[in-house]
């Protein structure tokens, strides 16, 4: 019988009980809470924000945001509260300064280089207009539909 009891105990206990959070604020302030919550990382989860995480601790952190909002703190002051505890790790959106600047600049740089390369490698002297259909005397199977090309040519005659 000891065994028989064990199984029900295993199922009934040993779990973190989910705890209910505070009720939301009025619509306008709650929207701000949710927006800020999206930008703060849950301390006990795996890379989700405190607004997204179903974990109880995330709800406690979101309640803290509510509390700070009610106290009339600015967004930056609220972020600073969490950064003071967890460092920049707490920010879902890395700062556009310091070590994380590269994240923002790198892709833009690459984009610029890419567009530059495309610009360099395509011909600049705009060739006189010519229908695409004549341009490729392909003998291999057509990648372009010949009827479509014809439509284009027709269009041009108009």
């Amino acid at each position: 019988m000891i065994q028989a009891l064990l199984i029900s105990i295993v199922l009934a206990q040993g779990y973190a009980p989910p705890r209910q959070g505070q009720d939301p604020l009025d619509a306008e302030r709650e929207a701000r809470v949710q927006r800020i919550g999206k930008l703060l990382r849950c301390a006990v989860c795996q890379g989700v924000s405190i607004a997204d995480s179903p974990a109880s601790m995330a709800r406690a952190q979101l309640d803290k945001v509510r509390e700070l909002v009610v106290e009339g703190k600015s967004d930056d002051e609220i972020f600073d509260y969490f950064v003071a505890r967890y460092g920049e790790w707490a920010l879902m959106e890395p700062r556009k300064s310091g070590v994380t600047l590269g994240l923002w600049v790198g892709p833009l740089l690459l984009l610029a280089i890419g567009i530059f390369l495309v610009w360099m490698n395509t011909s600049k002297n705009a060739a006189p207009a010519q229908p695409a259909v004549v341009a490729s005397p392909e003998t291999e199977k057509p990648a372009e539909d010949e009827y479509l090309a014809k439509v284009r040519a027709d269009l041009e005659k108009q």
Partner: peptide, 18 residues
């Protein structure tokens, strides 16, 4: 950042979305 500057940062959804 952790390997070079010993600093833990998060790159989350807001970054990727932007």
């Amino acid at each position: 950042t952790e390997g070079l500057f010993d600093k833990k940062v998060t790159v989350g959804e807001p970054y990727f979305n932007q």
